[in-house]
Amino acid sequence: MAETTRTSATTIDSAACAPEWTEILRQMIFIRRFEEATEREFRRGKIGGYLHVYSGQEAVATGILSAIQKGDIVFSGYRDHAHALTLGADPCRVMAELFGKATGVSKGKGGSMHLFDAEHGFYGGYGIVGGHLTLATGAAYALRYQQTERIVVCYFGDGAMNIGSFHEAMNIAGLWGKQGMCPVLFVIENNGYAMGTSIERHSALTDLSARVRAYSIQAEKVDAQDVFAVRGVADRVIRQIRETGKPYCIEAVTYRFSGHGAADILQPYRTKDEVEEHRHRDPIMILRNRLREICGLSDDDVKKMEDDAGERAAQAVKFAEESPVPDPRELFTDVVAEHGPQPETES
């Protein structure tokens, strides 16, 4: 099994200037503007509950999800806006979900932590840390059982690696992988903190990839502020997962610029200097500079992307604001299947 390696894109070939990279930059900028809008709307009292924004981690969602295929299934924890958006969920409906509106992707019943868009392959947004890892493992088994070539991508944070369901999911995935029955890509979004507890304080062994390899699952570390590096690894390992039906784990080393949640203002667990230092490795800046230097992306192009992203985020807010709240009758729907717990009549 491979040693822990830190992959980075040291050479850029002409494919680096493929139009796809411009699209990835556009998407990363949009995620940032969207998240900034959610923070504003949270402060205005338009968004309730918890709000966990993704700023700083954009290369993890875009680098991997740009490499999957239609029909693949994605699970995430509660920092889930970027995953849903990158899969193609309508930003207006995502924002409407955060506003608790009937037009939301989960009909206003889930909120920020439970975005869900099955049509685009997004199977949730889960709020119990680590709980969804077992679901993703079972989903992967189902996809193979049904003899498809679809795979599952399962995102979770470094903080999810200390709860029992992580270990149960990894062990089962490792076992099922040996039979080629577990095509799942586990993505650790290692942003260095479990809420406010740093990795050195929450993990006895801080080499997270090594912890995954303990379950007979291949794992590698990638500098996830560099979307080229993320995408490079993703292309390779997703192909391997699809071919072998074995799980794989990417430890995406990243950093979150905002607080853990919108209420995490003081951030006593880290210094402003630390955050500033990481802002010098902003994934959007890294990609933008590279496209400027190598592919001739102009300042005007970037400005237009920024303006478009801001405009689309504003549109989403407007849509959410103008949408109706859920009908009171919705309170009682979707608890169980409409016909109740009876078997359906056979046709």
Partner: peptide, 12 residues
């Protein structure tokens, strides 16, 4: 692990 993987299987 058993119950959780069953949820994922059922959803698919």
């Amino acid at each position: 692990g058993m119950a959780g993987t069953a949820v994922g299987m059922a959803m698919l």
